[in-house]
């Protein structure tokens, strides 16, 4: 150690480090670069990127810049990955329209193949989260495994998501008009991508903090709560907790009872009312 630190100040040290670094990156590239097989796709891939670039120039560049470098109207898209594009455009958030507290979900205006092309283009700008494959988010075909996934996913959801999205995924308020939206009717793929990319005020849950398997379990839980869960107690009143319950109790509990009381009092045994 001592020797090394002594030579740190040698005039040639910088050069040596540079050479070493270059060798390392070169070697790494050789090791990880797509091999022969991938070569065949590149033409299709680059075609998609070209198409995507054109679509991007028309629909997105006004805010994100021609090369996705970002402008004052939209952030840089370098490194956001194809998953971010698939989520943002696939849920209709992008292209954004009027400015507001938060870009809302709206009608999707691109076809899925156009979205894929846009995603390919943005992915080419820099590496980022990749659009998940169906087996990453689809429920397990084994019912027992699926049931276990749902209960594990529920626990994960309550730990990581319920503080913004509510225990049943009904959403909730954030500061200054921002909000965590309801997860009702959200495509499983988009749920997965939201976790990968952390849109707007949502934190991202990359694979390093939340492994793929856990994401799949959360998706299983959300889908179950939104679609398959029976309502054993009757109407759920929106699954919004005690506030709606209180409102319902006042109107349909006490309110009805007061109407009943008025009716009873009006039908008295007194022969005539003065």
């Amino acid at each position: 150690m001592k020797k090394l630190s002594a030579r740190r100040r040698h005039p040639l040290a910088a050069l040596v480090v540079l050479l070493l670094a270059l060798a390392a990156t070169g070697g790494l590239y050789a090791a990880f670069a797509p091999a022969e097989k991938a070569q065949a796709d590149t033409s299709a891939q680059s075609l998609a990127i070209d198409e995507g670039k054109k679509l991007f120039a028309v629909g997105c560049s006004s805010c994100h810049g021609l090369n996705g470098q970002g402008t004052s109207d939209g952030p840089s898209l370098v490194g956001v990955g194809s998953a971010a594009v698939d989520f943002q455009v696939g849920t209709g958030r992008m292209p954004a329209q009027q400015p507001g507290a938060q870009v809302p979900r709206k009608k999707v205006i691109y076809s899925q193949s156009e979205i894929d092309q846009l995603a390919a283009f943005v992915a080419s700008l820099g590496p980022g989260p990749v659009v998940p494959k169906p087996e990453q988010y689809n429920p397990s075909t084994d019912p027992a495994k699926n049931a276990a996934d749902i209960s594990k996913g529920g626990e994960l959801f309550r730990t990581n998501c319920a503080q913004c999205h509510n225990f049943a995924g009904q959403g909730g308020a954030l500061t200054n008009g921002k909000y965590a939206p309801s997860l009702e009717g959200v495509d499983p793929k988009h749920i997965y991508e939201a976790m990968q990319t952390g849109p707007q005020n949502m934190p991202s849950f990359p694979d390093t903090t939340m492994p793929e398997e856990q994401k799949r379990q959360i998706v299983a839980f959300v889908r179950h709560t939104e679609n398959d869960e029976p309502n054993p107690g009757g109407l759920t009143l929106g699954s919004l907790g005690p506030v709606t319950e209180g409102l319902f109790g006042w109107i349909f509990g006490l309110g009805v009872l007061i109407v009943v009381a008025i009716w009873v009092a009006a039908h008295t045994t007194k022969a005539k009312k003065s």
């Binding site: 730990t159 319920a162 503080q163 999205h165 509510n166 225990f167 909730g172 005690p242």
Partner: peptide, 11 residues
């Protein structure tokens, strides 16, 4: 370590 939105008391 868990919490949900809409965590209100009864009315």
């Amino acid at each position: 370590d868990q919490v949900s939105t809409d965590a209100q008391p009864d009315w």
